[in-house]
């Protein structure tokens, strides 16, 4: 469903991704681990088109999308959530989800009708709000909801475009342990045919949600395999200084 071939990116003398090749099958849930500065977010930015790789290619559902801009990749089914909330702050939760759903349904540029009133859009909003537990907050403005709920909305907005592949950059970043557990359930309850690529530091979530794990270090893939293999990897323990030994 999503494939990268020898993706390479440097900023001056700093080599941030080195020949990264990944292949995600349909419905696969892969977690990307790696210490700070490993190149995880830079990899995401290249996948969605916010950064252009120096070399290598990105393929979505068999199509080479390397030359496509962000919006075209999104319309082909590649959606992302951000590490820092990137929401429409002055708008309500419902409007946030509605804007995303309107783009997906093609109502976002219509002049003769209100996109947010369209039944197709409202159905997606209701469905996504249910999926990410936002029903009680639909009419609240983003500025009125808690940080944790905003993280849910961050994922919800990405989901409302009905993606083929959902990229999530640290979805539980900054949330407490209890809410983080809620996120595990939320992600596990998403449709099984949705392909997910998740950057995460929370080891519990990584091992709970992932079908496969990829570890980046200094921009390079140093591990690619099953969660149980990752647990036993000495190399990974060295990279993380044993931080998940008790996970």
């Amino acid at each position: 469903m999503l494939e990268t071939r020898n993706l390479d990116k440097s900023f001056g003398a700093v080599h941030v991704t080195r020949n990264v090749s990944l292949k995600l099958e349909r419905g696969e849930r892969r977690v990307i681990l790696g210490p700070n500065g490993a190149g995880k977010t830079t990899l995401f930015n290249q996948l969605v088109g916010e950064l252009t790789p120096d070399s290598g290619s990105v393929h979505l559902a068999g199509e080479d999308v390397t030359a496509l801009p962000v919006a075209k990749r999104a319309r082909r089914g590649l959606s992302r959530s951000y590490q820092k909330n990137t929401l429409f702050d002055g708008l309500t939760v419902e409007e946030n989800l509605g804007l995303a759903a309107a783009v997906h349904t093609g109502h976002a540029t219509q002049l003769w009708s209100d996109s947010l009133a369209k039944s197709e859009v409202r159905e997606i909003v209701a469905e996504v709000a249910e999926q990410v537990n936002l029903m009680p907050f639909l009419h609240a403005k983003v500025s009125e909801i808690s940080y944790g709920v905003r993280r849910q909305l961050e994922v919800g907005v990405a989901l409302a475009t009905r993606p083929l592949v959902l990229l999530m950059d640290e979805p539980t970043s900054g949330v407490g342990p209890e809410m983080s557990k809620g996120f595990h359930d939320l992600l596990n309850n998403l449709p099984r045919d949705l392909t997910m690529l998740i950057i995460e530091h929370d080891m519990d979530l990584a091992f709970d949600v992932a079908d496969t794990i990829t570890v980046l270090n200094y921009g390079e893939v140093v591990f690619d395999g099953l969660p149980e293999e990752a647990r036993g990897s000495t190399l990974l323990k060295e990279i993380y200084l044993g931080s998940w030994e008790n996970a």
Binding site: R80, T86, L87, F88, G90, V103, A108, S113, S115
Partner: peptide
């Protein structure tokens, strides 16, 4: 205009242009 799909998207662009682009809007 402001209540149309185009107007709603314009409002989204004003609030967060990067996100609207990431959602697939031209």
């Amino acid at each position: 205009i402001l209540r149309s799909g185009l107007g709603r998207s314009l409002s989204g662009v004003m609030h967060n242009e990067q996100r609207m682009r990431a959602l697939g809007l031209t």
